[in-house]
Design a protein around this nucleic acid. Structure first.
Lengths: 221, 221
DNA sequence: GGCAGAGTTTAATCAGGGATAGATTAGTGA
DNA sequence: TCACTAATCTATCCCTGATTAAACTCTGCC
């Protein structure tokens, strides 16, 4: 669909996001906001229309700009989408790790998994545009677009791998549950929530409680 | 992307699939085979590229025909895709219902859920192109394309709703598990298998056993 | 041994949408 | 108020891909 990746990526006049901590606080704040608006808009469109169906004009409309303005912030459509995927995936892992670190050191593997379930659901459903974008598109993007995101997803999986291993080490993993299969089943159950959960259907806390109970019962002896 | 749905759907010379049971056994057998080849090809492409990314030329290539030949069998690209979604969803339900009916009448709710888990996984992973196509695209298709499929999916859900209700009626559903949430969690865990399961990673039977055990432990007291 | 219709192909049409060029406007320091 | 940069717009280019039109090739049948 893209005409052809330009041989040499155009150098934008100056990528606003390039400067780490804005010198001109206000000047770049606006730029950063627009950039974020575009990213959010792209996540929304991506989750609803899929990669190939995500048109710059739709993103632009969502973000209240004209399509060509996007090129001021991102060198190409694919770069923008790539960033949505990566940022979304990275945020997921960051959030999980933070939640685990917030736990008292005394927390055992069972508590840790319970906390992970909560962190996963809460974050997934709060940034649902990003989550759904990732869940639906991760395996149907061209490789260069998904590479970094998939690496993040793999890292996220690794965190869970450790959680399950800790559970097993504590003798709290049922013998008939293969750790890898168990982990993917749990993650599947959690990921799928983005497809059906509706805030109107009841408080998230209830879902979280049920999920924690089911996950732990499905794994423990 | 589609230019515009033709005001009046072209009437193909004669839709080969129109005749229920071929009169000319052989004559129409070839036609039916090509039609099926196109459907399978479309499912494959759809699962890999998503709705908007599914090009007729890709489908044609997969099916070993030239793109315009598709119009001999389907009035439009959308009709073809719509049929992939519907056929895939319908097959899923048919298979589940058949598996349940094959159970001896003496089978209780626990056995029935175990059988349902097996039926779901086996069928999902066997016709994985259709399953993945549905799982990834169901919620990002234009409404007219997904309507029939979503209705099938809803019917499929209803079967599970009954299974869970039976479990509850038998006192085999834990009190802290909301039936609706429990059902969606289970279906999520099962659906997600299509995203990660790899035949090279071990026999399907092992996955099925683990899944059955986890599902039942997650629901039962 | 040529017709009819099924099944397919090649060639032509045409709208949609990414990307680019070249203004144009807003904001800021001098 | 001027000059300069950031940010954004309008006009346009041009390719991709769905669809259509118009043949062409079998195959079975009279």
């Amino acid at each position: 669909m893209p005409r052809r990746a330009p041989t040499i990526s155009r150098v934008p006049r100056k990528s606003p996001a390039a400067e780490p901590v804005a010198v001109h606080e206000d000047a770049s704040a606006k730029s950063a906001r627009t950039r974020r608006r575009l990213l959010d808009a792209a996540a929304t469109v991506l989750s609803r229309k899929g990669f190939a169906g995500t048109r710059l004009s739709d993103i632009a409309e969502q973000a209240h700009v004209q399509a060509p303005a996007i090129y001021y912030y991102y060198p190409s459509r694919e770069d923008l989408i790539e960033e949505v995927m990566y940022v979304g995936a990275a945020a997921m892992r960051t959030h999980l790790v933070a939640a685990l670190e917030a736990l008292p050191p005394s927390a055992g593997p069972v508590e840790r998994i319970g906390a992970a379930v909560e962190a996963h659901l809460r974050h997934e459903l709060e940034i649902s545009a990003y989550s759904t974008a990732i869940i639906r598109n991760a395996n149907q993007l061209p490789e260069p677009v998904s590479r970094r995101a998939l690496a993040e997803v793999a890292a996220y999986n690794d965190v869970w791998r450790v959680l399950v291993a800790e559970l097993a080490a504590a003798g709290e993993l049922r013998a008939d549950v293969d750790p890898a299969v168990g982990r993917m089943m749990v993650l599947g159950a959690l990921n799928w929530a983005a497809e059906w959960w509706d805030p109107a259907g009841g408080p998230l806390d209830d879902v979280i409680r049920t999920a924690q109970s089911m996950v732990l019962h499905s794994l423990r002896p």
